[in-house]
């Protein structure tokens, strides 16, 4: 059961039938966390990347010709800094970072406007992660993309995003500009989160970690869903659920007692 509304480019797409939604998907593409599981191991990279072009039509309603497909694939390889020869190879022949480049290339085949990236760098080693984060940043700049970048690593989030939405147990608890949210967090959960990130600095000030764990979404706590772990919990929090309220321009928080600076 789901409710609410998803509006994409002024159009409500929440309840659109598949037939209408499919052409719209050209404009929104996705990159997944597991770079290996998201590529069919039995097909060559060129084949995988060409599929969206075979499925979808050009803006003027014509089919993509093999010539335009081949041309587009070479363009993409250049875009994600992979050799052209990669098109002839299979997914298992690549390293994790290269496979993630392929996934990004596939998401970009149809020149989407929105890319949803679900933990695209969390399975990568730090040194390779930096390459992919840079690639995301470069592509965003050169192609004018919009990202929904889903991640749990706050440092990566800070590096890549303009705005941040912090979620806890299925709801947004804080939303605002990256620097505001990460440097002046107002929600106790965001504060705990920024303090809990292990930083590569020896002797950095340590804060007492949050108690307990995320409750089961099956029976959510009453009132504010964070109240069971909140260090500043008050009686009101146990009964009344806070709504996302604006506390500053471009900064919204779902907390009865936000920490204001």
């Amino acid at each position: 059961m789901s409710a609410g509304q998803i509006v994409f480019d002024g159009q409500d797409i929440t309840r659109l039938p598949e037939r209408i939604l499919r052409p719209l998907r050209q404009q929104m593409q996705m990159v997944f966390q597991d770079s290996y599981a998201s590529l069919n191991p039995r097909r060559r990279i060129g084949d995988l990347l060409a599929e969206p072009l075979r499925v979808h039509r050009t803006p003027d309603g014509r089919k993509h010709t093999p010539m335009t497909i081949a041309h587009r694939l070479e363009e993409l390889m250049e875009l994600v800094s992979l050799p052209r020869a990669a098109l002839e190879r299979y997914p298992h022949e690549f390293s994790g970072g290269q496979r993630q480049r392929i996934n990004i290339a596939r998401a970009l085949v149809l020149s989407p406007r929105l890319v949803v990236a679900d933990e695209p760098v969390s399975a990568l080693d730090v040194s390779v992660q930096a390459q992919i984060v840079n690639l995301f940043a470069d592509l965003q700049k050169s192609l004018g993309l919009t990202y929904v970048f889903i991640a749990h690593d706050l440092a990566v989030v800070r590096q890549i995003s303009t705005r941040v939405a912090v979620m806890y147990l299925g709801a947004i608890v804080e939303l605002g500009e990256t620097d505001t949210v990460l440097h002046n967090p107002a929600h106790p959960y965001t504060i705990a989160l920024t303090q809990a990130v292990p930083r590569p600095i020896v002797g950095a000030a340590r804060h007492a970690p949050l108690r307990g764990e995320i409750p089961s979404p099956v029976n959510k706590p009453s009132g504010c869903r964070f109240h069971t772990r909140c260090p500043a919990v008050q009686t009101r929090c146990q009964n009344e659920a806070p709504t996302l309220t604006q506390i500053a321009p471009n900064h919204r928080v779902a907390c009865h007692y936000p920490v204001l600076k």
Partner: peptide
């Protein structure tokens, strides 16, 4: 040195590009 440099910082100015290590092990 390169490994430490490639970690995105949590404080200070955000670098436009992260100093990544090219290639893979």
């Amino acid at each position: 040195a390169a490994l430490l440099a490639s970690i995105p910082p949590m404080n200070g100015p955000r670098p436009t590009r992260l100093p990544a290590i090219p290639g893979a092990p």
